[in-house]
Structure formats: C-alpha cells, structure tokens
Computed example of a mutant assay.
Amino acid sequence: MSADTQLTGFVDIHSHLTPGIDDGAADVEDSLAMAQLAVDEGIKTIICTPHQLGGYAENKGDDIRRRVAALQETLDTNRIPLQVLPGADVRIEDGMIDKLASGEVVSLGDHRKHVLLELPHELYFPLEPVLDSLERLGMTGVLSHPERNRGLLHQPAIIEELVERGCLMQVTAASLIGGFGQASQAMAERMVKRGMVHFLATDAHSPKSRRPMMRGAFARATELAGEGAAVLWCREFPLAVAEGRPVPAGPTKVQPPKRSSWMAWGRSA
C-alpha cells in the first residue's frame, strides 16, 4: 500500500459540521470550509454528530436528518467530494434509551447500531447499566473522547475494563498530537499502545480552531501501534459504522514498527 493510499479514504465518526445547530459550524460558510479541509486531509465520509440531550435538548432527530441532507446537497452543489451522514453526540441522561429506541435521538449513520456517548467532561460514572440497556436494543456504545474525561484521567484502568465489556472507544485525533494538553495526550498514547482504541475522529468544531485534521494522528498512531492498527482506527472500523456493520469488540491488535539496528546503535553511541 502506497503512502498516498494510506492517507486517503478516512472516515470521521465525530464532527460538528452541521451548520447552526450547536457549538460547531456557525453557518454554511463554516461548514463548507471545514468540509474542504476534511477532504484535503483525506477524509471521504463524515458522520455529522451535533450535540443531543443535555444542554441541547431542542435538537430533535428529524431536524438533524433534514439538516444533514441539506448539507449534502450544498456540498454536491459546491463540488466538494464528501459524503455526510446523520448522527449525534449524545449526552448520557435519563430517558436517553427510550429516545434512541424511538429515533428521536440519532445513532451513528442513523443505522441504530452504534451510539456516540458523551460523559460530562468533569467526571466519570459507571457505564455498565447504559451499555446493558443499549445491548438490549441491539446497539453498541461508543465512548466519545475518554482521554479528555477528568474522571477517567484519574482512573485509566476503567478504560480497559470498559473495552473488555464491549464498549468501543473513540479518541480525538488532536489529543494524540498534543492538541488537548499533556495529560490527554499521555492517555491517548497509552490507549493506542495498548490497543484500547477503535476510532480516531476529529471532533471538529470550526475551520479555524478544532479543525477536521486526521493525518497527523494517523501518522502518530502508525508510529505507536503500527500501520495496520492506524488503518483500522481511521478507515476500516469507522467505515463499518458508517455502513451499519459491526465493529470487533475488545482490544485491537497492535504491532509497533521495529526500529532498525543502526537506529538503536545510534541512540546508544
């Protein structure tokens, strides 16, 4: 596989690209600028995930679907080769399961297979009851940016327990290259090295800050866990979600590239 091929065909399952609905793209111009940046980064498909529930209780499923469909028409009109699909960044709260079952809260790709779950940034609370309830609906939980959650930063072993339980993990691409500070970067690197990741996603909010950048994270994941794992996290697993197919639960097999003997000699000289 050539280097150019490696850096294309990415699928982003977490992006606030939909204009005027939350704290992401403010208007269509922002969305178009973000979309072009994403294409330049090698991203071919984005699941638009505006916030739902919590402080965004007014965001309803049918409105999200309508807005994303309109955004696709705008992208096509402007000849930006990007596919967009509906989804949501869902704040965990009472009543969430019933709203997912009815379709009022949107699953990733609207396939009712995977749900992007957002914890409060400042704390962690047990997710097992939520994961059990989702499983009864035939859905799988995807935990959004665990490396940025203060509770998990203080209890990193919980992440491995959740992965073993079947929860999928979405790490923010920028975290892996230092965009959210040293603590989140260290946690992201730890997760990558141990294969406790299933998706690298941009969580993009703007064309100026928190942009839809993927290539740097792909390169860093390749350094830490090997090209095979990086391709799974940036392309194959998110593509499965976008198409409504299952993603293997549990840790991902990682194989960091071996350093050549002359590099090792050079460090010891």
Rank of each mutant, 00 (worst) to 15 (best):
L168E: 00
Q185Y: 06
I92R: 00
V68A: 11
A69I: 07
R190G: 08
K60Q: 14
E161T: 13
G138K: 04
R79P: 10
L200Q: 01
R210D: 13
V39K: 02
S184N: 03
L7R: 07
A188G: 06
L239H: 09
A157H: 14
A217E: 04
P86H: 12
R210K: 12
R211Q: 13
L200D: 02
R267P: 00
R210S: 13
R150Q: 15
Y124S: 06
S15E: 12
G138Y: 04
L100R: 06
G95S: 09
L143G: 01
P86S: 10
V115P: 00
L152R: 03
G55T: 04
L127G: 06
P156I: 12
L131I: 02
Q52N: 06
A33R: 11
A26Y: 01
Q83H: 07
Q155L: 08
P207G: 11
A174R: 01
Q83Y: 05
Q6L: 15
D4P: 11
A35L: 14
D27K: 09
S268N: 13
R259V: 06
G266L: 15
M34S: 12
D22R: 03
Q36D: 13
A219I: 03
R150I: 08
L239I: 01
H205S: 11
E243L: 04
T77Q: 15
S209N: 13
D27M: 14
L119Y: 02
L162F: 02
D40L: 06
D63T: 12
E128S: 05
P120T: 06
P50V: 07
T140G: 00
L162M: 13
I159M: 08
V106Y: 11
Q6P: 00
K208M: 15
M96R: 00
E223L: 13
A188N: 09
M96N: 00
S31M: 14
E128I: 15
